[in-house]
Amino acid sequence: MFDPTDLYRLDGDLPELSDPVLLYHLEGFVDAGGAGKLALGHLLAELEHRIVATFDVDRLLDYRSRRPVMTFDGDHWVDYDAPELVVCLTHDMTGTPFLIMMGPEPDREWELFTEAVGMLATRLKVGKLVSVHGIPMGVPHTRPLGLTAHGSRPELVTGPPSPFGKVQVPGNIEALIEFRMGAKGHDALGYAIHVPHYLAQAEYPQAAVAALEAITRGTGLVFPMDSLRDAADKTTAEIEEQISASAELSGAIQGLEQQYDAFQSGAERENLLAESTPMPTGDELAAQFEAFLAERDDRDN
């Protein structure tokens, strides 16, 4: 029998905590707009933190399916970007301690990894586990971002009702953690931020803002948001610049706005993933925005 505790090592003495929240995002599944990565990455960039646990990625990852980056300089190797999956301890703006788990989604040993997360959460006396990621939706960026909340108990789920019924989707480790932890009586919830489908492949800071705002409502944690909101405002301005220069894009966004407004008013109850009016696909819109962003990067460089 494999021991789940063999999958991680503790870094230093464990802190004395009382019902901390554990926020987690593991890269590998859908994360439209980089919502989860940007949100938790922002917190680690803004808040002082220390690693309290490190997982054994050599056991968990298939390096050949997503090869780490190495740097070659002239005639020798100078760097290796080793993947890390860690749990960090930090504090919010009020001094409340909480935990962040980030890194690549494991390729193997999902059940053992989930058991290890549960054992680590018990040792750290975690009171609530919260995941966040982005999903692409047929919505315009000119309207407030929606979200789908889900949890291990109905009482944990707040906000507007989900636009989805009962569906089957590809499995992912974030969902499995919520499912397994909930079955053992732990409070676990998650937020899927609805990101405009044409921005799904780009970094969209507004999605990270929506994610952290949702986490604040669900946990009471207070985060530094100024720099992230500034980045969101800058991105929105750049998107508007691109749209104003293209009649095709402007018409497509107007079509999405009409569809969204009709859905919100109850005039039609189509899934927002559908496109009821002729317009460019999400891939076509995304390609135009990516071309614009590439041109912007060339100008900046």
Rank of each mutant, 00 (worst) to 15 (best):
L156M: 02
I177L: 12
G182N: 07
M137G: 15
T281R: 12
G182Y: 12
G220E: 02
P140C: 06
A39W: 08
I239F: 13
R64V: 05
P4A: 00
V130G: 00
Q259L: 00
Q264P: 01
L99A: 04
P278N: 05
T122V: 06
L273G: 14
Q201R: 14
P144R: 04
G103N: 01
L40S: 13
T71M: 04
I177Y: 11
R153F: 08
R108I: 04
S265H: 10
R229G: 08
E203I: 05
A188T: 14
V126A: 03
L145R: 02
S227V: 05
D19S: 10
P4C: 00
V130I: 05
H141D: 09
Q206S: 11
P154Q: 03
G251I: 03
E240K: 12
L147K: 15
A247Q: 14
I215F: 00
E105G: 09
P140N: 10
E270K: 10
G151R: 08
A274M: 15
F113D: 04
A192T: 13
L22R: 05
R66Y: 02
F2T: 14
A247P: 08
H42T: 10
L22P: 01
D298N: 15
T281N: 15
A262T: 10
G218E: 07
F72Q: 10
F29A: 13
Q206N: 11
L44S: 03
A267C: 01
R296D: 14
L22A: 00
H91T: 13
T71N: 02
Y63M: 12
G118Q: 07
L273Y: 14
D19W: 02
F292V: 01
G138A: 13
G138M: 13
G103A: 02
A286S: 15
T90E: 07
D79L: 02
D75I: 01
L120R: 02
Q168I: 08
K166W: 04
W77H: 09
A294W: 09
P170Y: 08
P160Q: 03
R9N: 07
D233Q: 14
G146E: 06
P97S: 04
R66H: 08
E213F: 07
P83N: 03
Y191W: 04
E155A: 03
V157H: 06
A39N: 03
M101N: 06
D31A: 11
R64H: 12
V167N: 09
G266V: 06
D6S: 10
V209E: 07
G103D: 04
H194T: 08
S162F: 04
V52Y: 00
L147S: 13
I239T: 10
K37M: 04
A291Y: 13
S18I: 02
S250Y: 09
